[in-house]
């Protein structure tokens, strides 16, 4: 089983952040970056698949040179090989991103590594487009399933489970396939100190994809108002009802 995991470098979700003065980016000073959480689970899943089934694992990201840090983190956890599709750091829209990934997969396939499974996170923690995995599958003409919380293999098929109200939806896909996974599918490991040192020596393949014309452009970013954390008591007992109705109207709920 050869598995490729596509990951994205995103600001640590627990972190407080500020925007740059031009509103084009988040201020990265004093900020930790991480692998988008669903994708962290995808990396873990790939390692577990390899531990059970053998084969190879690779991780790929499209992003600036510093995103090699997230590749290296995956290598430290046990992924075999890393591919960086290096950009100038500007945000590529889902169409451009998936096209670059498809090109890379196809060119790697030509060198002899045939992927059976390409894993994505269900959506990235920053832009949250929910598109890249689906677009890659469509372009490769592979079956695709999203929002998966369990993966098993039977014969030449992936058996994937998705949580549904009160139960599970079960899907069978013929390999090769694309699966996007969700947090909860596993608990990702932390890279060991030995792994971190070994990863230093693993090579990361760098490809510079030509920047396509972007059709979806970022205008600017705005920070949502911080939650005040204050509790407002609208009233007690039956007398509170009008105040609650007024508040719900104010919030646009009713």
């Amino acid at each position: 089983m050869n598995t490729l995991v596509c990951i994205k470098r995103v600001p640590d979700t627990g972190a407080r952040f500020a925007l740059t003065s031009d509103g084009q980016d988040i201020d990265s000073r004093n900020l930790e970056f991480t692998i988008s959480p669903h994708e962290e689970c995808a990396v873990e899943e790939a390692i577990r698949i390899q531990e059970k089934q053998g084969g190879s694992t690779a991780v790929l990201t499209l992003g600036p040179e510093v995103a090699s840090e997230q590749i290296r983190e995956s290598l430290a956890k046990g992924i075999d090989r890393g591919v960086l599709l290096e950009t100038d750091g500007s945000e590529w829209d889902p169409q451009a991103t998936s096209q670059a990934i498809v090109n890379a997969v196809q060119s790697i396939q030509k060198t002899g590594t045939k992927y059976d499974l390409v894993l994505f996170g269900n959506e990235s923690a920053d832009s949250g487009d929910y598109q890249v995995g689906v677009r890659v599958a469509a372009a490769l003409d592979w079956p695709c399933i999203t929002g998966i919380k369990s993966i098993e293999f039977q014969n030449n098929q992936v058996v994937a489970k998705r949580e549904a109200p009160g139960g599970w939806e079960l899907f069978r896909l013929t390999l090769p396939a694309v699966v996007t996974v969700k947090e909860g599918i596993n608990v990702p490991r932390h890279p060991s100190l030995r792994g971190i040192m070994t990863a230093k020596k693993k090579e990361i393949e760098r490809i510079k994809p030509a920047k396509p014309e972007l059709k979806l452009l970022k205008q600017n970013l705005r920070k949502p108002q911080e939650k005040s954390g204050e509790i407002q008591i609208l009233g007690h007992g039956i007398e509170a009802v009008p105040a609650i109705v007024a508040k719900l109207k104010e919030l646009g709920v009713i």
Binding site: G14, N30, T34, P37, E69
Partner: peptide, 21 residues
């Protein structure tokens, strides 16, 4: 996983910039 939770170590003099990956 938001593994770092909301804990931030002190870095008033930007020492993190001196740290390797």
């Amino acid at each position: 996983m938001g593994t770092l939770s909301d804990y931030r170590s002190v870095d008033y003099f930007n020492l993190d910039e001196l740290l390797t990956e």
